[in-house]
Simulated scan of single mutants.
Amino acid sequence: MILIPVIDLMHGQVVRAVRGNRQSYRPIESTLCRGSVPVDVASVLCDHCASPLLYIADLDALLGRVTQVSVLQDLLRALPATEIWLDAGFASAEAARRLRDALGADGARVVPVFASESLDSRAELQRCFADAAHPAGRDGVLSLDRRDGQRLDAAGCWDAPELWPARVIVMTLERVGSDAGPDLDTLADVRRKSPGVFAIGAGGIRDAADLDRAAQAGAGAWLVASALHDGRLARVSG
């Protein structure tokens, strides 16, 4: 099981995500570090997990505000050996390409996360992962998003497994920061639709036992934040 640490960015700070209610998020309080400065929090999380990957949700962009380009550039400079998976509300492969260009040379280390809640259309889903003219999409990750049993999916991503890329995130937003345990039923449903996909879970991990259960259910990786900040997952030896 690969543990992928997560930071949620809002107004230049790391905030604590709880059940997908983004307007109510507050600056992070962590047992691992002081304060909510993105570089500090990201560095300690990657070190704690011995992770070459970091998942970033730019909540300003997801809420329709300006993308936090300068914060992302600071993180890329501070973590030169880290691959960044970025959800910035991309509606299209072209939007991801423009942001990677704006980030400069370090933008090549950004893997776009195309979320079902954000993509414009089924055609755009296909373009993201099949169009050779859009490398920002070709190497990206798809996030299948749902909350309270409802798919967040105007583009119809959930029902088009033939268009899914090799890596798919199963994002159950009401489980994020909830201490409710991982949503293994939805993970299993995604794996039934596309048995060969590398499935990455998101939300609900409370402790190492949950990670073991998720691995047994077929998850190859899991996005984690709250259990790390609360000291419920031990440091991973490098």
Rank of each mutant, 00 (worst) to 15 (best):
R146T: 10
F90R: 03
A199H: 03
L54W: 05
E124S: 08
C128Q: 05
D183M: 02
A209L: 11
V69K: 09
D40W: 04
D159F: 08
P27R: 06
D40L: 11
A215E: 14
P182Y: 04
A188H: 01
V176T: 11
E162L: 07
L75D: 09
L233M: 00
V224L: 13
Y55Q: 12
G35S: 08
D207G: 10
A78Y: 07
D148G: 10
V176M: 08
D185A: 15
G203A: 00
T172Y: 06
G149D: 13
F90V: 09
A81F: 07
R192Q: 14
Q23I: 07
R191Y: 02
D207S: 13
E117V: 02
G20N: 01
D120N: 14
I200E: 00
S43L: 11
A93L: 08
L142C: 03
S30K: 02
P165N: 11
R26F: 04
H134K: 06
E117K: 08
K193R: 15
F129H: 06
D87R: 07
A91T: 14
A81G: 03
R175V: 01
E94P: 00
G20T: 05
R192P: 09
L233D: 08
V41I: 14
S24H: 14
G177A: 01
A215G: 15
L152Y: 05
E83Q: 15
L142H: 00
H11E: 14
A91Q: 12
G231A: 07
R98H: 13
A81Y: 04
G107E: 06
A202R: 02
L9H: 04
V197Y: 03
D47R: 14
A61M: 05
E94V: 12
L59G: 06
L211M: 10
A42V: 09
G181L: 09
L103T: 10
R26A: 15
G201A: 01
A136V: 03
A214D: 06
P165R: 08
I84D: 04
P80S: 05
R34Y: 04
A17W: 01
A234H: 12
Q23C: 01
R175Y: 05
A105S: 13
D207W: 07
I7F: 02
S226F: 02
L32P: 05
A93P: 09
I200R: 04
L163F: 11
R151M: 09
A96L: 03
Q68W: 10
R192S: 11
L187C: 10
R122P: 02
V71I: 12
V15H: 10
F129D: 00
D185R: 14
D40S: 14
L79I: 10
S121F: 02
A214P: 06
L223T: 05
P161W: 06
F198V: 12
